[in-house]
Design a binder for these strands. Structure first.
Length: 508
DNA sequence: TTCCGACAGTGGGGTCGCAAT
DNA sequence: ATTGCGACCCCACTATCGGAA
């Protein structure tokens, strides 16, 4: 199949706002793609590459060659070129990679180049990713969407699942099973503003588990072999020897467990997230790192144990098996209750212990991987500050032409100015975007370039955030974590905004 | 007819490894 | 030795579609 056919369908999908319409376009193409190219077509049309990552980002994609006039590239040819780009390594590899990217683009038309540019930079923006593609695969293959989704959960890679469905229908999909040693899409949690709302969503009685601010891990053990995967199914076995040893210490040799690794201080309180993230992502000299910053693991679910797959069992039953499999010191602290007051006390306790919050879980929900359903609901405490807008950046995509990303500053009584604490674009409605764009242009003052408009520091905005973290980037040495806009405060002037000292007192 | 669950989009800060300078 | 890039860890929020109620 020619690449241009995929590009045309992608453009049709972009033009069609209705989800069913998008699914129709995608399914039509899947109905005529050959078996040998189905995986490539599905990957491209859901924003992925068969190679997953190829070491090419925005920088490598600048200064591309002139386009060709005739569209002749096939999916197979493009795929082979991407594989070659990924394979480049060693000295001079960046130049070699750029050259190969240049060769690839020199063989494409303007239309094809625009598509590949968006695909390679991870910004397909056609309004369809895995969620829509699942439906399209179902439609084209005649298999129920629920079977496609389940196979994806177990296999973790839609192009492979989709190709199997197109070739062998529902029979092929049902052949995907939980395989020890291959990562499963993890179950995700929705969120709620407070404990009562979370209980409302999950239903009572519910289980409340400590939410630890670490790295999500899925541990597989087959005999003496342990493999550990992250939330995005990347393998980190070599970075977490403590976890490997803990799993090898369990009596069972046939396990799939879900949990969190976190670096704890000697007194048992958690290190800042940055410490855990640094430890887990370091690959060099892990033996020495573990002496200084040991990792602890806490499991909260079992997907396989006792020789059986547990995904379809209700939470309460999986917990029973988990309790029989894992000693108490490796279990995430939890409480089962139907009492809001008791639940709120448990929340206060976990926050006091320095942890992130709670995950409230329905006792009856199966392990519904890959979706943020009502089965699991997280609750975290929320801080707020009144900060001053220092500048704003022009938005992209659907925010094109709107000033979107705000630069936030706290008042500095010493210096008399403002200290930048980070940026945010979250929490803004379309109405607010329109309003602030107009207002900022009135307030424009100082250095302004193609991306950023500096404004007079007059507007006060109320910001919610999860915490203050140490920052190597901002002048105050600190930055807000997960900052989002709650509302503007027209009743306040910049002189009324919170100070750097207030922010500093929130760090630690 | 209204409500609400699921999805896609829009980006945030921090860290690592590797290559280039 | 330092800097830039790509990838991945953590993530919040709004708009929209379309099935459920």
């Amino acid at each position: 199949m020619l690449l241009i056919e995929v590009v045309r369908v992608s453009e049709a999908v972009t033009r069609t706002p209705a989800r069913l319409g998008k699914i129709g376009h995608l399914a039509e193409l899947l109905g005529r793609v050959g078996a040998g190219e189905a995986e490539i077509a599905i990957a491209y049309l859901s924003g992925d590459l068969p190679q997953r990552q190829i070491g090419v980002g925005w920088r490598t994609l600048q200064d591309l060659p002139q386009p060709k006039l005739a569209a002749t590239a096939t999916l197979t040819e493009v795929d082979a070129r991407l594989t070659a780009i990924k394979a480049v390594a060693g000295q001079g590899s960046q130049a070699a990679r750029r050259a190969l990217v240049g060769e690839l683009f020199a063989g494409l038309t303007r239309q094809e180049q625009a598509f590949m540019l968006r695909l390679l930079s991870g910004e397909l923006r056609q309004g369809a990713l895995d969620g829509v593609m699942i439906e399209a695969v179902a439609k084209a293959s005649g298999a129920p969407a629920v079977d496609v989704r389940r196979a994806l959960t177990l296999r973790g890679w839609l192009p492979a699942v989709g190709a199997a469905a197109l070739a062998g229908g529902v029979t092929a999909l049902r052949a995907f099973t939980l395989e020890v040693g291959r990562a499963v899409s993890p179950m995700l949690a929705g969120s709620a503003p407070n404990v009562a709302a979370a209980l409302d969503k999950a239903g009572v009685p519910a289980a409340l588990e400590w939410k630890l601010d670490g790295i999500r891990v899925q541990a597989h053990r087959a005999g003496d072999t342990v493999r550990v995967f992250t939330r995005t199914l990347d393998e980190i076995t070599s970075q977490v020897p403590e976890l490997v040893e803990a799993v090898l210490g369990l009596p069972s040799g046939d396990l799939v467990l879900d949990g969190e690794v976190i670096a704890l201080r000697p007194d048992g309180r958690p290190h800042p997230f940055q410490v855990t993230a640094s430890r887990v992502s370091s690959k060099l000299d892990v033996a020495r790192l573990r002496e200084r910053t040991p990792l602890s693991v806490f499991f909260f679910d079992a997907l396989r144990a006792g020789g059986a797959d547990l995904l379809d069992l209700p939470y309460a039953e999986r917990q029973r098996v988990l309790g029989d499999t894992v000693p108490p010191e490796l279990l995430t602290p939890r409480l089962v209750t139907d009492d809001v007051t008791e639940a709120e006390r448990f929340f206060t306790d976990v926050v006091k212990a320095g942890h992130e919050g709670l995950v409230v879980k329905s006792l009856s929900s199966p392990y519904a991987a890959g979706r943020r359903g009502a089965g699991w609901v997280k609750v975290k405490p929320r801080h707020t500050l009144d900060l001053v807008v220092l500048a704003a950046e022009w938005g992209h995509g659907r925010r094109e032409g709107k000033l979107s990303n705000l630069h936030l500053g706290a008042r500095d009584p010493e210096g008399g100015g403002f200290v930048m604490l980070g940026k945010t674009f979250k929490g803004l409605t379309d109405e607010l975007l329109a309003w602030q764009t107009e207002r900022f242009l009135e307030l424009a003052d100082g250095p302004t370039d193609a991306w950023t408009v500096t404004v007079r520091p007059e507007l006060v905005v109320e910001i919610a955030f999860d915490g203050v973290q140490r920052s190597p980037r901002y002048p105050g040495g600190m930055a807000l974590r997960f900052a989002r806009v709650l509302r503007y405060r027209p009743d306040k002037r910049a002189e009324d905004a919170d100070t750097v000292e207030t922010v500093r007192s929130l760090m630690l």
